[in-house]
Design a protein around this nucleic acid. Sequence first.
RNA 1: GUUCCCAUAGCUCAAUGGAUAGAGCGUUGGUCUCCGAAGCCAAAGAUCCAGGUUCGAUUCCUGGUGGGGACACCA
Length: 592
Amino acid sequence: MKNLKDQLTQIVSAAFEASGYDPDYGQVTVSQRRELADYQCNGALPAARPYQTNPRQIAQEVADRLTGHAAFAEVSIAGPGFINLRLADDFIADQIAGMKADPGGRCGLEPVAQPQTIIVDYGGPNVAKSLHVGHIRAAIIGESIKRIARFLGHDTLGDIHLGDWGLQMGQVIAELRERQPDLIYFDPAYQGEYPAESPVSIDQLEEIYPAASAKSKADPEWLELAKEATGDLQAGRRGYLALWRHFVNVSVADLKKNYERLNVDFDLWLGESDVQPLIPGMVESLIRDGHAVESEGAIVIPIEEEGDKKEFPPLMLVKSNESVGYATTDLATILMRVRDYDPDAILYVVDARQQFHFTQVFRAAYKSGIARREKVSLEHNYFGTINGPDGKPFRTREGGVMKLADLIDMVVAKAFERMAEIDAAADYPEKERLEIARMVGIAALKYADLMNHRTGDYTFDLDRFSSFEGRTGPYLLYAAVRTRSILRKAAEQGLTSGAILPAAGETERELHLKLLELPDSILHAFETRAPNHLCDYVYGLATIYNRFYREHHILTETDPSRQASWLAVAELTVQVIELVLDLLGIEVPQRM
RNA sequence: GUUCCCAUAGCUCAAUGGAUAGAGCGUUGGUCUCCGAAGCCAAAGAUCCAGGUUCGAUUCCUGGUGGGGACACCA
């Protein structure tokens, strides 16, 4: 089924063409003035100049051709030449029926004609370091972009891209060596098997890492030790490798637990370490092909491009001490992804502060041919920083970072309190109430983040994530759950949904039209890589639906065919709300 | 210094170059003998400044002002 806006554009374009104008002027949009029209076409205005005529005259010619078309109840022109389209109620009802009957629950969104292979790189947590609030946006926004791409029919893979191979690993090793020098991993002479059990727990790691990091900053000599340990690890020292595997395993288990609570999951759990074997060959070939050159003792890739106003620092490929940094790793990651998946796009959902870094890496990848510009779209879908009240990146009062697990605990606890306050779910089993509180809390948290455009910074405020009234995640859950309750009662009474009738009033008509905007809204969110557009859409839908709910009492309706139609509309609305929430990565409880 | 991002109502945020700039919170006032009031209805309240492009600019361009980020050997 073709989406409504495209159908209308097709009709209007044909009218432009039949009147002797370029059909491209026939683009139709949802009207900004809903009291005047449902959809509008502004094409007559820009057409006036090239055709050297009055826009109102063009509009009139086109409108004359459209009048009488079965889709329209009224075609009029207004202002300087807007073509206003009011759709026929029975045409709308037919569209709704088509949407509801659409196979596969796609609600009128056709899968893309040419599916692409898309890798979404999000998450990017470091091993040995627990998730903190700074990781939340990548997880939430990335997950949503991944789901949207997948729903559109693209072959989509989410990759967590673990930070598991940098200096931080050497720092942790050095720190542990200082604390427990007798551990068998530090004995160079040891030749046997290493224990299967990790010598450190996740909690210990989380304490060791910041301690080591702080020491590195304060003490240059200690930093050298850490770098040395990093070098030894990367050179393959047995004991260090064994230790490193423990760190990774312990961390990944913890990461999985936390991401799972957020309803975030990855198809690939690859990390920086996975591309290390590719690096020597990549560097060699870059040098051989002349893309990489020696500079100040290091090997760099110059990446200036024509049009640069200022000199552009080159990408640091191999440092003067012969080690490699994350730019090199990221380049090798592109090499691996191209080799293994042949992607059409790689979307990096990463903090805006990495913009410069990605510009360097993308330029180097294209310039060297690691990625072909005409084949792979490398995009940094950056997001803004979560700031504290002082406008700087958020820190807790103690100056530390707030752990994501703690934030989730707080939000879920708030949801639980809230349920008790309003006496919700009071007679449900304890276990279900806890699960509902989790879903409500996570919905509040995720919606509060996703509703903001991803590029903007925002200020951390616990109230923002634990608000359950007004424009929030729970509002949306409530609309869905309340409707499910009606549908359950209807089923108990033996009532079933039936044919969709033309809208019974203005509110239902608006609801129909809003439902029909779904496909376009998903497409728009994907094209702009901006899930907040879906947040807007689903909130608008739920609001209109709530009004409909108040105005029409479905279960006591006396006209059986009207009642059956309303049940069908209610079913479709729940389906759409749940579909959009799923694209946002938000789960909906059966009841709450 | 160079460069990137941001600036909309008291607060927090929206807005595909279109007509009268939308919400939520907060404030004030309504609304449960009726499918779940985490709801619904109503009131007051805003595009940083100056130019430019355009039939039309919150949106695009230039220059200011203010805030934040980044700028080769840490990731």
